[in-house]
Design a protein around this nucleic acid. Sequence first.
DNA 1: CGGTGTGAATGCTTTCACAGCC
DNA 2: GGCTGTGAAAGCATTCACACCG
Lengths: 227, 227
Amino acid sequence: MKQIPEPSRRRLVTLAALLSQQQVERITSVTLSALTGWSQSLIRRDIALLEVRAGVSNGYDVRLLRSAICAALHIGVVESDGGADAHDERGEAHRCCIVGLGRLGVALLDGGFFSGTPFRVVAGFDASMNRTEVLRSVFPLYPASELETVVVREGIEYALLAVPDGSAQATAERLTASGIRGIVNYTGAVLSVAVPVENVAPVTALSHLLAQRVPMDFRGAVPKRIE
Amino acid sequence: MKQIPEPSRRRLVTLAALLSQQQVERITSVTLSALTGWSQSLIRRDIALLEVRAGVSNGYDVRLLRSAICAALHIGVVESDGGADAHDERGEAHRCCIVGLGRLGVALLDGGFFSGTPFRVVAGFDASMNRTEVLRSVFPLYPASELETVVVREGIEYALLAVPDGSAQATAERLTASGIRGIVNYTGAVLSVAVPVENVAPVTALSHLLAQRVPMDFRGAVPKRIE
DNA sequence: CGGTGTGAATGCTTTCACAGCC
DNA sequence: GGCTGTGAAAGCATTCACACCG
């Protein structure tokens, strides 16, 4: 199978999540269209990229479709009611770390976010020794000086970056130098690094919404919850 | 000026942030290309969409370019550091609320995130009366039952949604019914509503990174920090 | 029928290449 | 020289329309 283009890829990630929260067994593209606001043809095309016949004339098998998406995108997702294997190549969750244990970083420590997902937080870092000693968590916390060592030793793949804006770029460079594969950026800084970055700072997200500012007349082909 | 297409719009938002953290006075598309990893022509095209001549042969005027972008996208001033312009903050900031005061929601209460941005958090909501009474913040906290009333009364435009996944859709519907214009979704639930949603749940962001999984050979046309 | 999968057509986005300018 | 701005070309993504299937 070939590379899936980015727009489709992002929609498919959403679709996978959407399917996980579906209770029915079969679902049609028209329903998915209503739920997402994307056109039926678009949805069918996206699914066709998987090169799996997941649908017949009465729609797609939800379970099947979701695991096809997960397989194609290398997203392993743990079944809520214990069905598929859904393991990634190594059968292990992807190891992540949180860098910067301010209020936001600490909030992410909450293990609940990641249980039942293919991700596992295995380390936290903070510049201040105090914090790493005072805070309690289910996984070890380290002073920032040990970042490189620990990332390599623990085989950490992804980082959640929640340091102050001023140290963001420098920290990101240390992370990439240690072989990290991607960064979720909670800082307002724009990072320049050679790995993928997902910018999720509150202000960034709000800015995207604000910039969107579509003239308030777009009801019609719009997502609508299904009964 | 016409509608700016989405891909360009998202890049321009990033560009605006990038320019804010630049110290030089002038900057060329080749530099911006190095910082972002986007091609020079793409950057020039994006900027051309603004229909402002912000550049001459030695590059763009940083200050000018940034305000042109902000103007075109209706993003108010986003001063990164040092900026001495707290003057217009109160009158024109877009009013936001935080819904769900769990660990994550509480972390966002930290006013620091929004100072110097065109956004201001003016209310917090939580289903549990306890929390709204116990927590301290610079703006008022309300029980969830007052959501509709307060959103309307305070003219709140955007919501940061950090409730448990199970209540996400229902809460989102209440928010849109109250006239909110966009939602930053911190939950893992996929929302079906008629306003723009920015999905920023940790697991969602990580999934996008994981799905990206580009074969590790893409050094070359890659963002690189400038000395 | 109501639905999927897909060639063909449309419409967008990005890159190319170069004129014009400093 | 080095740079922006922009037609024109190339490359993608999305929609259309219809064959085909249960």
